[in-house]
Simulated scan of single mutants.
Amino acid sequence: MRITPAQRNENENRIRAAMDRLLRGEIPPGGKCDINTLAVEAAVDRTAFYGTRPYSHLRVEFERRLQALQQAEEIPDPREAQIVRLKTESIKLRERLAQSEQTIDELTDFRTQALARLAAQHEEIIRLRAAVAGASRVSRLPAPRSTVIGTGS
């Protein structure tokens, strides 16, 4: 079915208006910032945007403007912006988790070494006490007495 130049002009105006709304971030519920949503919002058949169809130049313009916004890190689709934000956050959290695991491994190794040193020192103390107890020339000092300071009564 052929359309008149006036109808084509009207369709292009609707498409451009819908394009502007989508690129401003006014995404309808259930829609995205894409050609399908553009076609639905402009009430135009989606296939009219492809190949040698009458509105293919508008699809190219829409994609160029969308890409320019994305390169400027301005994402009109809030869901896409959320996806990008969540991916970035996920990467940062994975890095923090890897750092935490490395720190835990280092602290576990330190704990193991400290316990081994303490056990070795304890064994050395026991050995030295046994050696002192067996020597007759060494006398033990009496344990210090605790002195209580009077209360003045």
Rank of each mutant, 00 (worst) to 15 (best):
R24G: 02
Q121N: 10
R64M: 06
I15R: 08
P5M: 13
H57C: 02
A72W: 03
P29I: 06
Q102N: 12
D77Y: 11
R140Y: 08
M1I: 04
V132K: 10
S153Y: 03
L23Y: 05
F62T: 01
R21N: 13
A143R: 11
E95I: 06
Q70E: 11
S153R: 06
V138K: 02
H122Y: 01
R129I: 01
S136V: 04
L118Y: 08
D34T: 00
R85P: 00
N11H: 15
A17Q: 13
T88M: 04
E123N: 04
N13Y: 05
E41K: 08
A130T: 07
A114V: 07
A81G: 11
H122P: 02
A43R: 11
G51H: 05
P78E: 11
D20M: 06
N13P: 00
Q121H: 07
E63C: 09
Q71S: 04
Q121M: 12
V84C: 03
Q70R: 05
E26H: 13
V40C: 04
R96S: 13
L38R: 05
M19N: 08
G31T: 04
Y50C: 03
R65A: 13
G134C: 02
T103Y: 08
A68G: 04
F110R: 14
R79H: 05
C33W: 01
N13A: 15
G150Q: 11
G25C: 06
R140P: 00
R2D: 10
E61R: 14
I149Q: 08
A68K: 08
V138I: 15
A133C: 01
Q71D: 14
R59K: 15
I75S: 06
F110Y: 10
T47L: 09
S146C: 07
L69Q: 13
A42S: 15
S146P: 00
S56T: 11
L107Q: 14
P54I: 12
L107S: 03
V40M: 08
A72M: 09
L118E: 12
E123C: 00
I15K: 06
P142F: 09
T88H: 07
L23H: 05
R21K: 15
A17F: 12
A98D: 11
T4H: 06
L69H: 09
F62M: 03
A39P: 05
R94N: 13
R127W: 07
H57D: 15
S139K: 14
E89L: 10
L23C: 04
E123L: 02
R16V: 06
P144V: 09
Q7A: 15
Q67I: 00
S146I: 12
F110Q: 13
R94Q: 14
R145W: 05
A72K: 11
N36E: 12
E10M: 10
L66Y: 07
A81F: 02
T147Y: 14
R59C: 09
Q71L: 14
G150F: 07
L107N: 12
G51E: 06
I3E: 15
C33T: 08
E63I: 10
D34M: 01
Q99H: 10
G51L: 05
E73D: 01
Q102M: 05
S136I: 02
G152F: 11
A17C: 02
D77Q: 07
R111K: 12
A42F: 13
M19C: 14
A116K: 14
